[in-house]
Amino acid sequence: MPLFHTLSPHDRVLVFAPHPDDEALGCGGLIQHAVALGAQVRVVFQTSGDNNPWPQRYVEQRWVIDEDCRRRWGARRRLEAVRSVETLGLQAEAAVFFGLPDQGLTRLWQEKDEQALALHVAELQTFRPTLLVVPSEDDNHPDHVGSHALIHEAMKCAGMNLPEWAYLIHRRWFCPEASGLTLQLTLAQKARKLAAIECHETQLFLSSSRFCSYARDQEVFIPSNPS
Score class of each variant (00 low, 15 high):
residue 77 R to H: 09
residue 68 D to C: 03
residue 90 L to T: 01
residue 226 P to S: 11
residue 106 T to A: 06
residue 167 Y to S: 03
residue 112 K to R: 15
residue 67 E to Y: 09
residue 215 A to V: 05
residue 145 V to C: 05
residue 217 D to F: 14
residue 210 R to V: 09
residue 136 S to P: 04
residue 11 D to A: 15
residue 30 L to N: 06
residue 41 V to K: 02
residue 206 L to C: 03
residue 88 L to E: 05
residue 143 D to V: 02
residue 67 E to M: 06
residue 2 P to K: 05
residue 79 L to H: 14
residue 199 C to W: 00
residue 105 L to R: 03
residue 195 A to W: 08
residue 49 G to K: 08
residue 64 V to F: 15
residue 21 D to V: 02
residue 37 L to M: 14
residue 2 P to Q: 08
residue 47 T to K: 00
residue 4 F to R: 05
residue 169 I to A: 07
residue 167 Y to R: 00
residue 39 A to I: 10
residue 27 C to F: 01
residue 192 R to G: 00
residue 131 L to M: 09
residue 151 I to D: 00
residue 21 D to R: 02
residue 31 I to K: 10
residue 110 Q to T: 06
residue 83 R to M: 10
residue 89 G to Y: 06
residue 172 R to D: 13
residue 83 R to C: 10
residue 220 V to D: 01
residue 92 A to S: 15
residue 1 M to V: 13
residue 56 Q to W: 07
residue 202 T to S: 15
residue 129 P to S: 13
residue 227 S to Y: 13
residue 226 P to H: 07
residue 44 V to D: 06
residue 4 F to Y: 13
residue 93 E to A: 15
residue 72 R to K: 00
residue 223 P to F: 01
residue 105 L to Y: 04
residue 115 Q to R: 13
residue 130 T to I: 14
residue 212 C to R: 15
residue 73 W to E: 00
residue 135 P to D: 08
residue 97 F to E: 12
residue 143 D to E: 06
residue 128 R to W: 08
residue 2 P to R: 07
residue 171 R to V: 15
residue 52 N to Q: 12
residue 161 N to C: 09
residue 67 E to K: 12
residue 174 F to P: 02
residue 160 M to G: 01
residue 61 Q to C: 11
residue 120 H to C: 03
residue 130 T to P: 09
residue 192 R to D: 04
residue 190 K to V: 01
residue 183 L to W: 09
residue 150 L to H: 10
residue 168 L to N: 07
residue 46 Q to T: 00
residue 93 E to V: 11
residue 171 R to D: 10
residue 119 L to K: 08
residue 78 R to W: 11
residue 2 P to F: 02
residue 102 D to Y: 12
residue 169 I to F: 03
residue 225 N to W: 15
residue 215 A to L: 08
residue 162 L to R: 04
residue 223 P to Q: 14
residue 101 P to Q: 11
residue 52 N to F: 10
residue 188 A to M: 14
residue 168 L to A: 06
residue 53 P to Y: 08
residue 50 D to I: 12
residue 198 E to N: 12
residue 114 E to Y: 11
residue 60 E to Q: 12
residue 161 N to P: 08
residue 46 Q to C: 11
residue 193 K to I: 01
residue 132 L to M: 09
residue 19 H to R: 02
residue 168 L to Y: 06
residue 170 H to F: 15
residue 124 L to S: 04
residue 113 D to N: 14
residue 35 V to E: 05
residue 98 F to S: 09
residue 10 H to Q: 14
residue 74 G to L: 02
residue 73 W to S: 02
